[in-house]
Every structure is written in structure tokens, then in C-alpha cells.
Design a protein around this nucleic acid. Structure first.
Lengths: 180, 180
DNA sequence: CCGCTCATGTAACTGGTTACATGATTTA
DNA sequence: TAAATCATGTAACCAGTTACATGAGCGG
């Protein structure tokens, strides 16, 4: 999304499109598998619309760098100040949870396999979040640290939910729910 | 996503594309604002690929209904049985959290406005989840009830996170983090 | 000097959104 | 009988993904 790129560019100051792309693809929070094909056109679009501009700063090897314009900072502030509506606040994605809606289609053994596999991945993700938070703190990026704390809260909630409901998920008979 | 439609069609048994569309757009868990323009082509695609088929059942008003084929049930089972990888398990979306990464761009008063507005929406969402769970239990759809319990856990974690970090978010000075 | 990372793109494809369009049936 | 809901689509647009393509600089 445009605002994420705008936000990263604002935090970093003048940097290359490549650097933006790298941060987009490695962040614990960003949900796009942004690669070159997305980032370069997106940055182009933002420049065309006046939110980013070519920076005067040029690297040793002639890399071009971009920076946020006044207009861009204004748009970022607008986005952060606009009250969030219920639709956006409630909109979350969780691919583990998504599957659990239909677990009745498979037997208990398969359900256990899925849930236990998911728990392992979530624990790995929890550890990754902790490392990311430490890294952000070290870098002095307090907002990213607090935001990633949110990912950690979420991950622990998912672990707790799956752990507590595991037995119930396994005990429900296979098949679709009764018709009404 | 295809699997969600497949899952809903499996749960419901023969039903119209319209009914699938309605469930997609009202569910607490589905993240697509699926409208006609998405659902009809998607169902067409699933029929073409053999996962859905026209059902013999026809409504009083001549509505066509679709149902899952054996192949479709197989694909659904496959999806549910395949172990989830870290990338998919870690991939979550939260538009409130996304903004908090860049809250340093605005002053403390604006941050407080954003956070407090978000808390109000999250509380409303929490109540909506509770109602949805009760409804699913009433309908005898235990898997959806347990899955939506997951949404509830998540929502409460987000509330707890924002409540606990609110003061910290407000106390950090405005501006971008120091360069390294 | 070979391979890796930095750096910058392009082109084709896919899939979702918006907006439009139509008509039947139900309900107030 | 008028409005709402059920029901079915289409077409233009937009944005993200995949895969391809290139070349410079750096470290072993």
C-alpha cells in the first residue's frame, strides 16, 4: 500500500527504491510479498502524484534516491489522523483460522496434524517477533518496536486460542453441520 | 479465495451463487469484500475446473444451485491437511497496527485520537464476535463457533495491546527515528 | 574471476473492485 | 403498488505476482 511506502520513506529519509523494497519484503508487519514488479511502479506512481521526489542525494555508485515531499508528509499525517472505521478495524487476516472454519471436512487425526503443525509455526513466529522487537529498540525505532509488540500479542493470542480449543476441534464429529 | 468458497459450499450443500456471495460478504472471518463481480466469475472458474457442479436441486423460482464435487471435497481436504508453512502462518493483516508503525509522524494529541478511536471500534468488534459465536452455536456449526472464538481472542489481544501501550505511544517525541 | 548482493526495471498474467444492468419475487 | 431483496451477470479498471532481463560493484 502507498501509505506504507510513504511511511518507510519518511522514517528512512532519502533512500533507494531498492531499500524500500527490501524493507517491505522483510518486515514482520507488511503483508505484501512486494518484489521489484510492485515496488518500482508504485514508487513511480507516488512520484507522479507528488508524494515522493527524486532526492538530491546520490550514492557513490550513482544510485538514485527518493524522499517524501511536503505533500507526502501531509498525506501520511492525514492517513494517521483519519479515524479508522469499523470495517477497517475488524478486517484481519489469519490463514490458520481461515482453515479451521472447514476442519469438519477431515478426520480428527488430520485436524490434530494441522493444529500441531500450526502451533509449531506460531512458536517460531513468536520468537521471530521477539528478535524483531529487540532489533527495533536497538535501532531506536520505538514506534516499530511498539507496533511489533502488537504482532507478539496477536501471535500469543493465536497460540492460546489453538491450545485451548484443540481438544474441542478434535472431538467434533466429521461432516457438515445440520441444516436449518 | 477458492478454498473459502469451496468450504462454504461444502457446509451448505446445494445453494445459489448468490447465497455464497452473501456469506462471503457478511462473515466475520472473510477478508474479501466479495461482490457479484468477484463471486460469479469465481464460481464459474470452480465449475470449469470440476470442483463445483450444477446441482439437480432447483428452487421454486428456478434458481440454479451449485454443489461441491468429489474432486472439490478432495481439494478441500488437501488444503486442510497440507502443513501450513511459516510464511503463511505469520502472514496477518491489521490495519490499526499498520498505522502505529508511523505514528511518530504526528503529534501526541493526534496519536491519542487515533488510538482511542481504534479502541472504540475494537470494542464494537468484540461484541459482534460474541454475537456471531452465539449464532453459530445456535445453528450447530461448532467449527465456525470455535474459529470465531479465534477472532475474539485476537480482538481482545489487540485491545490489551493498545491499552497497555497507549501511554508509551503518546510519550515518544515526534519525528523520525535516529539514523544508524 | 566467480558468485553474491545491490540496483533497476519490463511484460504478461491473474484476480479483485467498481460500477453498471436487468428482472423476478416478496413484503409492507 | 412501491420498495426491498433475491438473483445473475458484464465490462472497464487497477493492483499485485511471476518471471524475465540486465549490469555494476564487492568479497573470497
Amino acid at each position: 500500500m502507498e501509505y506504507t511506502v510513504l511511511g518507510i520513506a519518511w522514517k528512512r529519509g532519502p533512500c533507494t527504491t531498492y531499500a524500500l523494497m527490501m524493507e517491505l519484503s522483510t518486515s514482520t508487519s507488511t503483508f505484501y510479498k512486494k518484489r521489484a514488479g510492485t515496488t518500482y511502479p508504485l514508487v513511480e506512481r507516488l512520484i507522479k502524484n507528488g508524494y515522493l521526489q527524486q532526492s538530491a542525494e546520490v550514492g557513490a555508485r550513482g544510485e538514485r534516491s527518493v524522499e517524501v515531499t511536503e505533500l507526502g508528509i501531509g498525506a501520511l499525517g492525514q492517513w494517521l489522523t483519519d479515524p479508522i472505521d469499523l470495517g477497517e478495524a475488524a478486517h484481519t487476516v489469519d490463514f490458520i483460522r481461515l482453515r479451521t472454519f472447514y476442519l469438519g471436512a477431515v478426520n480428527s487425526k488430520d485436524r490434530a496434524g494441522f493444529i500441531d503443525g500450526a502451533l509449531i509455526q506460531l512458536k517460531a513466529h513468536e520468537a521471530a517477533c521477539e528478535r524483531a522487537i529487540a532489533r527495533y529498540k536497538e535501532m531506536g525505532d520505538d514506534f516499530s518496536a511498539l507496533a511489533t509488540e502488537g504482532v507478539l500479542f496477536e501471535t500469543r493470542a493465536r497460540l492460546e486460542w489453538l491450545t485451548k480449543t484443540r481438544e474441542q476441534f478434535l472431538s467434533i464429529p466429521q461432516g457438515k453441520p445440520p441444516k436449518r
